[in-house]
Amino acid sequence: MSAAFARALLQPDAPCPAGLKTWNGSDPAKRFAVYRNNVVVSLVDALADSFPVVQALVGEEFFRALAAEFARANPPRSPVLAWYGDGFADFVENFPPAAGLPYLADVARLEWLRVEAWHAADAKPLPLAEMAARLADEAALPALRLALHPSLRLLRSAHPVVSLWAAHQAEDVSAALGATDFADAEAALVVRDGLDVDILRIEPGAAEFVESLLRGAALGEAAQTAAPFDLPATLGLLLRSGTIIEATPSGRIS
């Protein structure tokens, strides 16, 4: 029974499933449409909550058509809707009507990382005084290993994703968008600091450095990046954003 019902829920043009009845003999299709509508609208709403900047960039009508197509082709696999939208960015990338907006998929990727950071596990940042004590021994610095906040995410994009995202947090969105150079490549550092998720623009080399730290490299090794970057400024940013939760002299991160 539920197989036919389930199939018809996701196909807008499919006939309503057999075996339904109504007290007054009215066509059950109109009543079945309530379920079909609930399913798609609630999933589109969930995506709109997670991808507000994508919606703002393309407009509500375009977004809802895009999200409905995604939802019908990719219904959630879990009842935990917080995780619904993994895969949306790839869908956007291959959605022909959005082909004229090459940055759109990366904006979706950035917003998805923000959702992940929002719900990631909690961890206490390393107090600044303790970090200062560990940085004091300059000879030991290259072997220092940093444990980073579970919410930390990175994105390296060929598009100005951080500027586009930030423009939609500004009071005058149009002016902020007007000041964005669409040819810029940008890297983003996403981390939850307290109860808010920060999205910070960092140098591509700094992103490479943080990626190495995440793989467990010691400070000295991680600093050997292909692209140059400002190491002290990057460490300062990691500290201020509460990203560093532990620093151990060498060997394993406890």
Binding site: F5, A6, G19, L43, P75, P76
Partner: peptide
Amino acid sequence: WSSHGGAFFNDLLPAP
């Protein structure tokens, strides 16, 4: 019911 065949429909659906 709300799930079938691995998909979750995010609605409370009826059964006979």
